[in-house]
């Protein structure tokens, strides 16, 4: 097992290098650049001052030299300094933003599991029932709803019309003066809508997936055997069928990392949440190369890690795979 994990980790290094190379080329081959973004609107900027800026950021070097430098710095886990006026280290900027994005994603992931698994199981066991039909319709609608639109509607309903929940940011203006409990409650009120929305898309997919796994498992011989030897239905469903139907769900966990990260751009922009997605959006708009490279690399790393954890989890849960 340990050898397998080590091998996978080693194999992910060339993958990460490849990903960073593609991102790098893509960024630098596009017309325009970070210097233009700053100087185009400034009439006082001379050709000479532009050249000085180019040299300052190392953008006057040939591409392979620039990439080589970036890679060499990355080897020591140095992400470089941001091109933005504050010029702070990229790693510092990302470290500030990651906790809130991860919090929202972990919470929404938990919500997805808590809701989707029981719904999927119940739909499968009572296939064709009213509950199954309602949940199927809901799932199809869920697949089709633009999340940002749902966000707008919920903001209108709960934020504007009812005034129950705040519609932007992660804390109120008087956050500093609140006690510990008050702070927690305030943060929770701000996170309810974003977490619900982040979970929504995954909810539909996961419950559908769980339902079809369960339907598949229920037809297996060992379930028929369990029934034939007279086990109560509850025991057949939860002990024999459910545990096997849950296995493939582990894989989905790993695969959903890139979607969650991508989704965070949208809802962090809508709700003005200072997370990774918002940081990336700002970085892209100002052509902050080191920041963009940093976030893309971390995103790819998290995805690879998610896949690895999923495979390891699967192997731990299913002895058939461990032996293969």
């Amino acid at each position: 097992m340990l050898r397998y994990i080590l091998r996978r980790l080693l194999l992910s290094i060339p993958l990460l290098v490849g990903i960073s190379l593609v991102s790098f080329l893509m960024m630098h081959m596009a017309p325009g650049g970070p210097i233009g973004a700053v100087t185009d609107l400034n009439p006082k900027a001379t050709a000479e001052s532009r050249a000085r800026l180019q040299a300052y950021y190392g953008l006057d070097q040939p591409l392979h030299v620039q990439y080589g430098r970036w890679l060499a710095r990355m080897a020591t886990l140095d992400f470089g300094d941001s091109f933005s006026p504050d010029g702070r280290p990229v790693s510092e900027k990302i470290r500030e933003r990651i906790p809130i994005t991860l919090t929202i994603n972990v919470l929404s992931m938990t919500l997805i599991f808590l809701v989707a698994i029981p719904v999927g199981i119940y739909s499968a066991v009572r296939k064709g029932s009213l509950f199954d039909r309602i949940s199927t319709v809901t799932v199809f609608t869920g697949f089709a709803i633009p999340t940002f639109w749902l966000a707008l509607l919920l903001m209108i309903l709960f934020g504007v019309k009812l005034g129950w929940l705040p519609i932007s940011g992660i804390s109120s203006l008087d956050y500093g003066s609140l006690g510990v409990a008050g702070k927690l409650a305030d943060r929770a009120r701000h996170l309810i809508l974003p977490v619900l929305l982040a979970a929504f898309g995954g909810l539909a997919g996961m419950s559908r997936y769980m339902r079809s796994n369960m339907l598949e498992v229920i037809r297996q011989d060992y379930v028929a055997t369990a029934r034939a030897k007279g086990l109560p239905e509850g025991k057949v469903i939860f002990r024999h069928a459910m545990r096997n139907a849950l296995l493939p769900v582990i894989t989905i966990l790993g695969l959903s990392v890139p979607d969650l990260l991508g989704g965070s751009v949208i809802f962090e922009t809508i709700f003005a949440i200072p997370g990774m997605g918002q940081l990336f959006y700002q970085g892209v708009m100002s052509r902050d190369y080191p920041l963009i490279m940093g976030i893309l690399t971390i995103g790819a790393f998290l995805t690879l890690l998610g896949n690895l954890l999923a495979d390891v989890g699967y192997a731990l849960a299913d002895p058939r795979i461990r032996q293969a």
Binding site: L15, G18, I19, V22, S23, M26, M27, A30, P31, G32, V257, P258, D259, L261, G262, G263, V265, I266, F280, Y281, V284, M285, R287, I292, I295, L296, G299, A300, T303, L304
Partner: peptide
Amino acid sequence: MRFVDMMLCFPAFFLILSVIAFIG
């Protein structure tokens, strides 16, 4: 297939966002 694996590791929306922002 390794290339496919690599492309699948990009958070696709991040990639689309940056390319569109750059090339207009």
